[in-house]
Design a protein around this nucleic acid. Structure first.
Lengths: 113, 113
DNA sequence: ATAAGCTACCTTGTTATGCAAAGTAGCTTA
DNA sequence: TAAGCTACTTTGCATAACAAGGTAGCTTAT
């Protein structure tokens, strides 16, 4: 068991989370790693994030733009395309439609009604 | 995109759900496919379920026992081992610790706009 | 200057998992 | 005899997370 249970559970989820964060405002890769950490997705490394960004870009769900940084290396800011907004909607729908059944299944025990 | 978003999201989740259902009471494969359906995990086929059962068995998280059926083919009933109970606990913990951050992330924009 | 440490990006290879698709076979009903 | 449900099994593929490696700019302390 090299890949942790957590890694498996995150499959498909990270992509949606990244789309959602980028939707709020233009964001760059390193910032994403910090934000995900803050939100509580603590073990998500850059080795996960950058490949996702490249993939999203290739699928035309986001577009990137290099910008000068006043301090430190330059940053590549991403924003959603129209396709990205659609993909995020689809993700949110699928997430809800999985979350609810799962909660019902693992909650059965000792619950009223 | 051959594999659906839904398939990706289900990774790691199905295993936990199956453990949870089996914990309630001894259950066999075909029954699981019906129950998952009823709970709302509608596209989960036997091609997913039986491989999971074999895997769980190989990892000593469940044990199976063939029993005669009064109507139809015989059934292989499974129940949790001690390792299975532990694995289920771990799953529930990881599920909660992912669900909450994700809900926070995709909920941000919900109100305004 | 130089080292240390943060910021910021990128790539490769491994591995696990869902599941489509195919197969086998028992029982029931028409 | 056929259809249709029940019930289990196996093979092969696509995909995503991420560890582990790398490059490089900027800042601060020694």
């Amino acid at each position: 068991m090299q890949l942790s249970l957590r890694s498996q559970l995150l499959k498909g989820i990270l992509e949606g989370c990244i789309l959602s964060i980028i939707k709020q405002k233009q964001t760059y890769g390193y910032e994403l790693s910090v934000k995900l950490q803050e939100f509580g997705l603590s073990d998500v490394s850059e080795g996960s994030i950058y490949p996702i960004l490249l993939r999203l870009q290739k699928e035309n769900l986001i577009v990137g733009e290099m910008k000068k940084s006043e301090a430190g290396p330059n940053r590549k800011y991403y924003q959603l395309t129209e396709g990205g907004h659609n993909a995020l909607s689809e993700f949110m729908y699928q997430w809800e439609s999985i979350k609810e059944p799962v909660d019902r299944i693992i909650d059965i025990k000792g619950r009223r009604s």
